[in-house]
Amino acid sequence: MEQKAVSILKTALRNPPLLTLLLVALVWLAASLTLRGFGAYGHLRYLLELSAVIGIVAAGQTLVILMGGIDLSVGAIITVTAILLPLLSPSADPTGLSGLAIALAIATGIGFLNGAGAAYLRVPPIIMTLAMATFLQGLLVIVAGGSAVSVTNAAVLWLGQARPLGVPSGVMLWIAVSAVVLVIIHRTPLGARLLALGANPLASRLSGINVTRSMLVLYAMSGFFAGLAGILILGMNRQGYVGIGEPYLLTSIAAVVLGGTSILGGRGTYAGTIPGAILLVTTTALITVVNASPGWRSIMFGSLILALLLISGREGRR
């Protein structure tokens, strides 16, 4: 019996997604037993709703990181969609779906530009996406001028507020996104190619993988998912403002790494990012419960990420 438990633990230690999932279960169990109200259905549902946003941003981030890149513009793309969508939604369309489509097209286009810069200009992705974020920041100041914009788009509000069958529609969206991304990574040629690209770009290119096209597609996808998350956030908040997307940049990267995906690319899966996002939201919630000062909260958050990394994110020598 004891041996069996040990062997399960050993398997988990070698399987980062499972390990992260176990950690989430452990934290939820411990918190439900010790904190009043934590284990209530409403609270857990709320945590999942928050995780859905991070999970969707991190979906694109996972794909890009697996390929050996990184997208530092997701925060800015979220802000762009959250601010532009209310302004661009045609009032003639009562469903609001056309506004949704326009916003997603813009987000995807921005991602595509990231990919084009990285692929054609050979700018390192970290710089390309950073420069893109700087551009967008400037752009937003012209468009929004610093004030918040409220949303009336029906589709967006439904996405952010509705709970068909008691499940928040944001969580449903996340489940759909997860299914799509997992299929892409594990069941399509593109998934196998992006993992190969992340582990050895040169050998992949010489094996006939079109690096340029892969980059364009994946950065566009990252832009698309960031835009989707931006719409969800807008629906949950009912208004968009400059800076609304900023917190999601670092958390999306942290969720990916906590899920056991190598930051250097070539190894990992979205199956780890999912519990990674939940773990991140849960720990943040717990830190808020402790009622500490902002400084202490920040320290606890950083130390937790570091501690979790020690368990799951070890890398070989570079």
């Binding site: 993992l195 190969a196 582990a199 050895n200 040169l202 050998a203 992949s204 010489l206 070539g266 190894r267």
Partner: peptide, 9 residues
């Protein structure tokens, strides 16, 4: 090792 194979895979 560098150009032919994806070593960790």
């Amino acid at each position: 090792k560098r150009e032919g194979l994806v070593l960790p895979h």
